[in-house]
Simulated scan of single mutants.
Amino acid sequence: MRESEEATVPVTTAYWCERVTYRSMEADEVADVSRSTAADPAEAVRRIRSAVRDLASVLVPIERYRALSWVDGGGCIGAMGALHRGEPCGFSLSHRGTWIEWTVRPYLVIRVGGRHLLPVLSHEGSARRGE
């Protein structure tokens, strides 16, 4: 193998998606967490839009309006723009006394031996570098 081939490590950007449901509006106790990765910003935002749209019919009117405004309007467009700039994005809403947050963070996927290395997240949920 030539030296230039050894130094080249395939790196791509992927998107770390989380949905966290807190037991109360104070967001102090986690009730549920789901995590996944998306291959591109459109897929990541589509997942949030789908989940929010699924909840919309059972939300109180003000939250329904806010949720659908994000889904069908500028919120999801802004989220897509942030991801394309390499910035995180998210959306949150209240539902039956709980607080739900969706976040998406770009991260670099490093392929080693044909496998992906996933990001290491601190307890605050932000990616750590070199630790």
Rank of each mutant, 00 (worst) to 15 (best):
M1E: 11
M1D: 03
M1Y: 06
M1H: 05
R2S: 14
E3M: 12
E3R: 11
S4K: 10
S4E: 10
S4L: 06
S4W: 00
S4C: 07
E5Q: 14
E6V: 11
A7N: 10
T8R: 14
T8P: 05
P10A: 05
P10V: 03
V11W: 00
T12H: 02
T12E: 06
C17A: 05
C17W: 15
E18R: 10
T21G: 04
Y22P: 07
R23A: 14
S24I: 06
M25L: 14
M25P: 08
E29H: 05
A31Q: 07
A31W: 04
D32G: 03
D32Y: 15
D32S: 10
D32Q: 13
V33D: 10
V33K: 07
V33Y: 02
R35M: 13
S36F: 09
T37D: 05
A38K: 11
A39W: 15
D40Q: 02
P41M: 03
A42N: 09
E43T: 12
E43D: 06
A44T: 03
A44H: 01
V45P: 00
R47V: 00
R47K: 09
I48T: 05
R49P: 04
S50N: 10
A51E: 12
V52G: 01
V52M: 13
R53P: 00
R53A: 14
R53W: 06
D54A: 15
L55T: 12
A56P: 02
S57I: 09
S57R: 11
V60W: 06
V60N: 11
V60E: 15
I62H: 14
E63S: 06
R64D: 00
R64H: 01
Y65S: 12
R66I: 06
A67F: 01
A67G: 04
L68M: 14
W70A: 01
D72F: 00
G73A: 02
G73P: 00
G73D: 02
G74Y: 07
C76M: 08
I77A: 11
G78T: 07
G78R: 15
G81W: 06
L83H: 04
R85L: 15
G86H: 04
E87G: 02
E87T: 04
G90W: 07
F91C: 04
F91R: 03
S94H: 11
G97A: 04
G97N: 01
T98G: 06
T98H: 08
T98S: 15
W99C: 05
W99M: 13
W102R: 05
V104D: 01
V104W: 01
V104N: 02
R105I: 03
R105G: 01
P106C: 01
Y107Q: 04
Y107S: 05
Y107E: 09
Y107I: 05
Y107G: 10
I110P: 04
G113M: 09
G114R: 03
R115G: 07
R115E: 15
R115Q: 14
L117K: 07
L117Y: 04
L118R: 05
V120Q: 08
L121H: 01
L121P: 01
E124C: 09
E124Q: 14
G125R: 02
S126H: 08
S126E: 12
S126P: 07
A127Y: 04
R128P: 02
G130W: 10
G130E: 08
